[in-house]
C-alpha cells in the first residue's frame, strides 16, 4: 500500500521559492498566475493492507519527521 504525503509551508509562512517561481512564470508570459506556493511530495511504500492503519502510521511519520509542524502542514492520501 502506498501513502502519499504532501508537505506545504503553512499559510502565512513566507515562501520565497513560490514567489520566485511566480515571477519566472510572469516573465514567461503567464500573466494570469497569482500566488504560487511550493511544497514537496513524499511517497511511502507501506507493508500494510488496512488503509486506515496505513493513514494513521503515515500521519505519525509526518508529525515526527516528514513535516516540521512549526512551519509546515501536511496531508496524507492512501493510494491502492
Amino acid at each position: 500500500m502506498k501513502a502519499i504525503v504532501t508537505v506545504m509551508l503553512k499559510n502565512g509562512v513566507l515562501d520565497p521559492q513560490g514567489k520566485a517561481i511566480g515571477h519566472a512564470l510572469h516573465n514567461l508570459g503567464f500573466p494570469q498566475v497569482g500566488e504560487v506556493r511550493m511544497g514537496k511530495i513524499i511517497e511511502l511504500e507501506l507493508a500494510e493492507t488496512d488503509a486506515a492503519k496505513a493513514k494513521t502510521a503515515a500521519e505519525d511519520m509526518a508529525r515526527k519527521l516528514l513535516a516540521n509542524t512549526v512551519i509546515e502542514s501536511f496531508k496524507v492520501e492512501i493510494a491502492a
Binding site: 509551508l9 509562512v13 520565497p16 521559492q17 520566485a20 516540521n68 512549526v70
Partner: peptide, 11 residues
C-alpha cells in the same frame, strides 16, 4: 529551541 530556520528571504 523554538521556531525554525527557513530559506533566506532573498533565496
Amino acid at each position: 529551541l523554538p521556531g525554525a530556520l527557513l530559506r533566506n528571504a532573498g533565496l
